[in-house]
């Protein structure tokens, strides 16, 4: 029993939610948000897609099996600790630099990459569990 209204609504909402989740991830360092929250919002969006259009739509949209994200997330988080080693600092020391852009300065740092890893893990975890539960 798939509702057309829900499907249309999801079609509209899912991209917005995904965009919003990235926004939450990026601003998390200064305002409420971050990898955990962004990841949860992104997975909520993906599950919304699943509820409205079925798990196969999710699989199609993800292109790759979502459980691969589990490994990638951990790898990204781990990799964020490596640059510090190159500077002779302890593993996972945060490094920052500011990149000037036309719309203002943009802070880029290894903790942001770490948060991206958290984001990817959370999405991987929630979506993997959802898809497995659906097909069980």
């Amino acid at each position: 029993m798939r509702s057309i209204l829900l499907a249309k609504l999801a079609e509209l909402l899912v991209p917005i939610l995904l965009l919003f989740s990235f926004f939450l991830l990026l601003r998390g360092h200064d305002l409420p948000g971050g990898g955990f929250i962004g990841g949860l919002v992104a997975s909520a969006a993906i599950i919304l897609l699943g509820l409205s259009s079925g798990p196969s739509a999710v699989r199609q949209a993800m292109k790759r099996p979502p459980h691969l994200l589990l490994g990638w997330g951990i790898l990204i988080a781990l990799a964020s600790g490596l640059p510090a080693l190159a500077f002779g600092l302890p593993f996972m020391t945060g490094l920052w630099s500011t990149i000037p852009t036309p719309i203002g300065e943009f802070k880029l740092g290894t903790p942001l990459i770490f948060d991206l890893g958290v984001f990817v893990v959370v999405v991987g975890v929630v979506v993997t569990i959802y898809l497995e539960m659906r097909s069980a």
Binding site: F36, V122, I129, E132, A136
Partner: peptide, 20 residues
């Protein structure tokens, strides 16, 4: 607490499947 919430969510999902 933030990590505790997320982790207990993950563990809850696992426990659900186990109980099922």
């Amino acid at each position: 607490i933030l990590t505790a919430i997320v982790i207990s969510f993950g563990v809850l999902a696992f426990a659900m499947v186990l109980v099922k």
